[in-house]
Each structure stands twice: as C-alpha cells, then as structure tokens.
Amino acid sequence: MSSKTEQQDKRKRLRNRWRKQDTELTLLALPTTIWYILFCFLPMFGIIIAFKNFRISGGFLSNVFNSPWVGFKNFEFLFKSNDAWIIIRNTIGYNIIFIVSGIVLPVLFAIMIGLLHSRKASKVYQTMMFLPYFLSWVVVSAVGWAFLSFDKGIVNQMLVSMGSDPVNWYMAPEYWPYLLVFLNIWKGLGYGMVIYLATITSLDSTYYEAAVIDGASIWQQTRFITLPMLKLVIVMMFILAVGRIFYTDFGLFYQVTRDSNSLFNVSTTIDVMVYKQLKTATVGMASAAAFVQSVLGCATILTANWIVRKIDPDSAMM
C-alpha cells in the first residue's frame, strides 16, 4: 500500500492515516495482546462475584451467573471494623515510607556503586545484596526467630552476655516499625537497584564526554547529567508504586511478625486484616475486598499520573 512517495508527504497528513508501520507494530504487539486477553481480561468477569451470594449449582460459569445478586452486602464487613483507622494508617503510612525509601536508597546506591573504582568489588557487592530477595518471607520469618527469639535468639544471647536483660522482641511493639521498614529495604534493595543501574549503564556517554571536556567534576556530572537522565525512570517507578499504596506484603506483616498480638497496632495492614476476617467468610467477600483495593489503587495511580502530567507531561506514564 504505502510507497516511497507517501513517505515524502508531509508528516501532518501522515499522522491520521494508518501506515504500514502501524500494521507491523500491531503484528509485533499481537502475541502480548493475546496474552493479556487470555490471562487478564477473560478472568475479569470474576469481579461480579463481589456482588453475588456465591453458590454452587454445577460448573463455575453457571455458579457465577445463577448466584443471586446481593448488591453491596459483601462489602459491609470492610467498613464495620473497629480498627479501621489503625489499619488504614498502617497501610498508607508504611507504604509512604516504603515508596520514598524504595526510590531514594536504590538511586543513591546505584549511583554510588557505579562510582566505585573496582568493577570486581562492585559485582561482588551487588551479588551479595541480592541474596535476601531469594529468601521467601517464611524463611525470613524463621531467620528472624533465630535472631529475636526470647531464650534462643542470637540478639538476646548477645544482650545477656553483655550483662543486660533479654528483650521479648515479638511483644515489644516499639521496635517493630523500624524493623519492618528495615526488613523491607533489606529484602528489596539489591533488586531495586537493578533498574537504576541498567539505566545508568545504558545512558549515552557522549553527555559525560562533553561534560568532562567542559571540566565538570564527577559530582557535577552526577548532579547535572545522571540524575536528570534518571528522572523518567524515577517518576515512572513512583507512579507504579503509588498505585499499590493500598496493598502490602502479607508475608512481611503477618509471617515475619508471627501474628503477634502485641504487635497488632504496628503491623496490621489491609491485607492482614482481610486475611483474618476471611477465615470464615465467602468467596464473595474476598472478591469484594480485592475490588475495593483495585478501585482505590486505580484512583491513586490516575491521580498521581495526572499530577505528574501537569508538572511535566513527558514524564507521565500515560
């Protein structure tokens, strides 16, 4: 269809016409699009379970469609909790800290590790910093117990040998906000750095060459070249993280704290609460909880994107 003469046409006219490139790009995007349809969009009819009193009457589809509608009844339990305030405070509070620390620290350390003189050392550090990522939260919980257990833990043994009293860590809520933040950073730091490291290493080095010729110091280069070039990635990571502000890592807040009663006020988040409430509940209530998280997440992510677009249209995700 398209020929060389068409390509020489003015760009303005081209913008609205379907070109050969568009067909080719569609073809390229097709496998992934099919994947999305199969694994993401087809199951979405499941959302209606949140509004139904789910009953078994045969196959799954007939279960879903024959179950009676109950409106928002499945949502009631979410808003009748006595501790709603504590739970929302914990969820959003921890997430704000996680978002900030999850951007600032990896960026900082990615830049720092790039400035190390020895490549070999930097590789060794990176590999070591990755290890925690592979310990599942259940294992982390076991390791935590090895450190913090009252009578067998490493920390208390050290305290006792230094002459102080042992601490019953799992019943001492004052330490846990720090500990949870620490563990979250500890587990994700190595992983979080990868994105920034990859961006830094793939930056066009002509900028740096020019800067060196102009006599810029390594700090000036970092400040005026590296950081601005990372902006796009940082903003994107920020928007993505904000969309998850109503979700927390169940393993961190439930398994690592050993579901300790004393730590309720500092460790209960939306996911933990929903898990506990749903032990006796129905699939409809589980769907309702997930749906509320989705809607809130969608709202925050779109708001964040909108704000970013106002400030700097190029950085916005959509």
Binding site: S81, N261, S262, F264, A281, M285
Partner: peptide
C-alpha cells in the same frame, strides 16, 4: 452463619487480635 457473615468476620478479627496472649 450465612446471614451473619459480616458479624462473624469482624468478631473473628477481634478475637484474633487478643487470643494468643
């Protein structure tokens, strides 16, 4: 408990908060 789902879920959560101790 089919008509008490909300109450049971919330009571369960309260009990969970104190039961171990």
């Amino acid at each position: 408990i089919s008509n008490l789902q909300t109450e049971v879920a919330n009571c369960q959560a309260v009990w969970d908060k104190y039961k171990y101790e």
